[in-house]
Write a protein that binds this DNA or RNA. Structure first.
Lengths: 162, 162
DNA sequence: GGGATCTTACTCGGATAGCCTGTGTCCGAGTCTGAAAGG
DNA sequence: CCTTTCAGACTCGGACACAGGCTATCCGAGTAAGATCCC
């Protein structure tokens, strides 16, 4: 059970974009330069967030990505599922269907108690992540690191600082 | 975030072995035939459980695998971690170390609030899985499918039924 | 000077390779069983 | 009949291929900004 890097990148990018002024898009090149990440690959991950309706994208100069809705309406779970996929982590192949003496041919996921256990654990995991929003994380960061927001905005908007 | 098949196989195998009489080992070939799984690969997964101290293995005729301790002392989390590895699912590469204006060079995992959020969610997930034991699942199955235990034992121990 | 046009540079988006972790298979070392042989 | 020996077959364990997905990169379509030209 391993999550891809794109999750971390997507979450940090969303937090940063929650600080930039509305209407101002941030290009993936800017974000990549800020975080020292490969620009094209970061762009690819952000595309997944666009497909999920979390971000909006604009092409051309002064283009880039912006949050598609208010950051308090974007949960951490939304970002995770957008990048990792919405499928359950525990793939239940229903091996008991092949075992003799069980006779469970359909509706396996609800019958197999092991599958139920794994599913319940994942529900708690998802619930925990859905409780946290991008705005909540951003506010916590602002409280803990007062200079973080201003520094981030300075690097992401305005003229490029070579 | 995807778990390997070995988790499902390992859990079902442990539940089945909690039913077989103590001292009687079950070979991976028997289990594989029962569940219609590739025998060699199932063997490989069970090896991981042996390395984790969950199972004990005996070579030779009448050999196979057995639970290393009482099934109420084996949690679902033990099996999951034995097969998937003990590392956290959210790999925090600490991209903020490279971002300017943050000055967090060490102890990143405890400082970054995004990492904290992901870690907390995973802790709840692991806690949920650690609450469920192999014995608990086995008892629930026995209550719901009274014939399951006898049928499983019949197929896994005693002479082979061609 | 003001407006239309055109170049230009910048951005996303998808298509294209490389690598690394599962997935699946195979063969050898070790060992217990069971039969056979001998006393 | 009991003990010893021995061959045999069965099992785990690790070493060996294969595949799919994550990682990383490149180039083209589209667009808005800014310069240029004309009125």
């Amino acid at each position: 059970m391993k999550l891809g890097q794109g999750v971390e990148w997507g979450l940090h990018s969303c937090v940063s974009m929650s600080w930039t002024p509305p209407g101002e898009a941030v290009s993936s090149a800017r974000l990549a330069e800020f975080y020292k990440l490969p620009a094209a690959y970061l762009n690819k991950q952000l595309q997944a967030l666009v497909r999920a309706g979390i971000l909006t994208s604009v092409s051309g100069p002064r283009g880039g990505f912006s949050l598609a809705r208010r950051p308090d309406r974007i949960s951490v779970l939304d970002v995770v599922l957008a990048i990792e996929g919405k499928e359950d982590s525990f793939r239940c192949e229903g091996i008991l269907k092949n075992a003799p003496g069980w006779g469970m041919d359909a509706d396996y996921a609800r019958t197999c108690l092991i599958s139920q256990t794994m599913r319940h654990a994942e529900v708690t995991w998802r619930t925990e992540l859905s409780r946290q929003s991008i705005a909540g994380i951003a506010h916590s960061i602002e409280r803990r690191f007062p200079q973080a927001r201003a520094e981030t905005v300075r690097e992401l908007v305005g003229p490029r600082t070579p």
